[in-house]
Structure formats: C-alpha cells, structure tokens
C-alpha cells in the first residue's frame, strides 16, 4: 500500500496512509502516515466505535492539510483494551515450533505438487 501511495505522490496526488504496521510503512517511506497502535485489522478505528473512527479520519484529514514535509507520522491517542496481542501475533516458541515446521513443509510440498501438475 505504501508503494501505491508513493506512486500517487510522485504524480502530484497528495496521500495519507492509515495503518497499524508502523515499521513496514516507515521503512518504505511515505509522505504522510496516521499510525494507530492496534492489532492489525482496524487501521481506521475499533469496530463499532463510530466516534473513534470519525476522530481518526479527522486526524488523517488534518495531516493532509498540515504536513509540510514527507515521512510525517502522527500516532493517534488510542489504546487497545489489552496488550496480549503484541505477544501472541505470529508467536514462535517451544509450544508451536514443531507444528510451524510441519505447516511450512506441508505448504511447500503442496506448492511443488501444483507446479508439477
């Protein structure tokens, strides 16, 4: 998505990226970025929370108007109710290491079979 934003900017269209994966967007480098520190999935606010969604959109619009240089990141003030997701997402530990290795092998075998057929 950051690559698309860069293309639009290079062609004269101002953009804002809204997202929750701060490192991916900032590594790529975009003109304007509204970061909300939530689990991936709801870059424009919590499901069912219309007031929060309106406020986050408002931040994106403010940023469009006011940013004066590229790589401007604004972090919204919202917190997810708990922090467990930070540890749990794509977790790798002793409890799932064997299972992950098995899943990877299964996927590669399937891809190899599809390639042959």
């Amino acid at each position: 998505m950051s690559l698309v934003a860069r293309h639009l900017e290079a062609n004269g269209l101002p953009t804002v990226v809204m997202g929750c994966a701060r490192d991916i967007v900032e590594e790529c480098g975009v003109a304007r970025f509204v970061f909300t520190d939530f689990p991936l999935g709801n870059p424009s606010g919590k499901p069912g929370d219309a007031a929060m969604q309106q406020a986050i959109l408002g931040t994106a619009l403010d940023l469009l108007e006011r940013a004066w240089m590229p790589r401007t990141t604004v972090q919204t003030p919202y917190q997810w109710p708990d922090d467990a997701w930070r540890e749990n997402f794509m977790r790798v530990d002793a409890s799932n290491r064997e299972e992950l290795a098995r899943q990877g092998k299964e996927r590669r075998d399937l891809q190899a079979r599809l390639k042959k057929s």
Partner: peptide
C-alpha cells in the same frame, strides 16, 4: 491481520 485479537465485520474499522 490479527484474526485472534479483532475482526473486520465493521467495514468502517478498515475502510471509513
């Protein structure tokens, strides 16, 4: 995206 922590049933939560 984090299918354990949240959901996408409210379109405005990812496309406002």
């Amino acid at each position: 995206w984090d299918k354990k922590a949240t959901h996408t049933r409210d379109v405005d939560s990812f496309l406002p």
